[in-house]
Design a protein around this nucleic acid. Structure first.
Lengths: 313, 313
DNA sequence: GATGGTCCATCAGCGTCGCTGATGTTGAAC
DNA sequence: GTTCAACATCAGCGACGCTGATGGACCATC
């Protein structure tokens, strides 16, 4: 016979207390709850042991029980707790359906500008009460680290991260040459034609490194005259005649008449855009839907016109 | 295999969830709580069945478990509930010690004026945070009814209520003659001397009826020229010469020089003052103390000087 | 790639707990 | 007194929860 404490409390006890207080007798409470009178009697006795005090006065004979002053106090707390438990249940249901929730997503400039608005728009339409937080960074490592630490639920990433993350590949984003209209003949440009050309690029990040490695692998030593991480500035510099740029196609505004895009020949290895999350981790329902939507809206980029068609428009 | 719902929730589940989330592994949580790892595993599994969703991602291998998004939500609610349960426990302790509580007491004019202040004063000194509510009524039936309905925790009553209530007798309050000083010789007055005297009395209530019955039993027909339920007004009318009054001694200000008190011979059956509560009902700790204190302070009235000594002072 | 270590899941065994159904007890009403 | 309507108690039993051991997954290390 060990000492019973509130840690042994069960919701069932509170339900029984409430029912007895409401119904007035153990028997009616038992009927209501689908137990026998004996069971209710034992449940209340057990609760009285936990509380360490009588909750009901039993007048004996055919008269109903009545709460003691202690019982009144406990009942008030019990009803409060029951209401809280119920509201937790409802909140969890809302969470499961995505009615409430929060999601934090990592992203970077080109995705922020071209992909994220499409996804966020559909998310807000489907789940108006879901809070969507976005962390944008120039630096892939920041996003990876934050994702690894669990600060991000999801992150857009470049490349495959099969080792560390689970991911859904969204689309391939080819490197294209950005030049002033007419500077090169329409259509593909040979890498060798870029030899010695003044180039505009980004500071060292995964795309830029991928890009430069591709160029060097083709035997040319790029001549960077300006670097910026702002994609708009890269295009602006090209327009201003500072040089040409090799950029992921997603980083360039396809409707900008001041520039012309050219496929490269041979093509550099394209970058693969994916949305990733920590390997093996369960996603919230909202996050799952976010990934689905990201996949759906990415069809736009899978099917997008090739650069020469665009510049020829 | 029946469907588990939140109604099957137990505090133990929440404690286990909290411990695992805090400790990071099932094993350490088990050590902390004095269970085996197996028990914790089963408790969490059981909770996951209740919640109908995984709460932890188990990476497998030597790495600790991590909360799923659902788990985070549930944990937050669990901690809130645990805190609430703890605070209920503390509140109940305070209730038991009388540190908090409320008591509603029925009373009537003479007790309000002479007895209650003594009791309330000591109660407030002992239990400064206990709320004391007082219902005063001219009409005994009101108090009895309110006590019977449970609206009062305690009530001062006149007479024995052995049938309906439990009670503690406090003291006996004799009926005395109230007259102007010198109107009667000091000391006892014969009932027969009151025959035909103009009298001031109360409206029909238990004391007044008791009083009149006693007079009639002694063979005299009282001649009431004025009735009021206000004890001060009775005395004032006596002082003004409207008549004499037969009153419970407690209803008269013993220090009032404008009146003189006389015992009656033969004495009328005195009224017995008691504090009563519903038969068989458990009293709150504060109410128990209230009754004790009422008994203690009533010693003043048990031992109080007889009327002729008072008026001779 | 084999090994050891550290996790959690699972299983069998078993004690305990909670429920049922029947019986005992109490007090009020007739 | 008898009856009735309450709750308490008891024996029995089934289910549940815990223990201790085992198994499986995964990582790190060699």
């Amino acid at each position: 016979m060990v000492m019973a404490t509130l840690r042994d409390l069960e919701v069932r006890h509170l339900v029984a207390l409430d029912a007895v207080a409401t119904e007035g007798t153990f028997g009616r409470a038992a009927d209501k709850l689908g137990y026998t009178q004996s069971a209710i009697s034992q449940q209340i006795a057990s609760l009285e042991r936990l509380i360490d005090g009588k909750l009901f006065d039993r007048p004996g004979g055919p008269r109903p029980v009545e709460l003691t002053p202690l019982g009144e106090r406990v009942l008030a707390s019990a009803r409060e707790l029951l209401a809280r438990v119920d509201s937790v249940g409802e909140e969890l249901d809302r969470f499961r359906t995505g009615e409430v929730g929060r999601i934090t997503v990592g992203t970077y400039q080109s995705v922020s500008a071209r992909v994220l608005p499409l996804v966020v728009g559909r998310m807000r339409a489907e789940y108006p009460d879901v809070e969507i937080r976005v962390l944008e960074s120039d630096n892939d490592d920041d996003l990876d680290a934050a994702l690894g630490r669990g600060e991000l639920d999801l992150s857009f990433v470049v490349g495959d991260w099969a080792g560390q993350f689970d991911s859904l590949p969204l689309f391939d984003d080819p490197f294209v040459l950005v030049a002033r209209p007419g500077e090169y003949k329409r259509g593909a440009v040979r890498l060798s034609d870029l030899n010695g050309a003044a180039m505009v690029g980004q500071h060292a990040n995964s795309c830029q490194l991928m890009n430069e490695m591709g160029l060097r692998a083709a035997g040319l030593e790029p001549n960077y005259v300006f670097r910026t991480n702002d994609n708009g500035t890269v295009s602006a510099m090209v327009k201003a005649g500072l040089g040409v740029a090799v950029m992921p196609m997603l980083c360039v505004d396809p409707d900008d008449p001041g520039i012309e895009l050219h496929p490269l020949r041979p093509a550099l290895p394209h970058r693969r855009i994916a949305v990733a999350w920590r390997k093996g981790r369960t996603l919230s329902p909202v996050a799952v839907r976010f990934v689905e939507i990201a996949g759906e809206v990415s069809q736009v980029f899978v099917d997008r016109p090739l650069p020469w068609a665009t510049s020829a428009a």
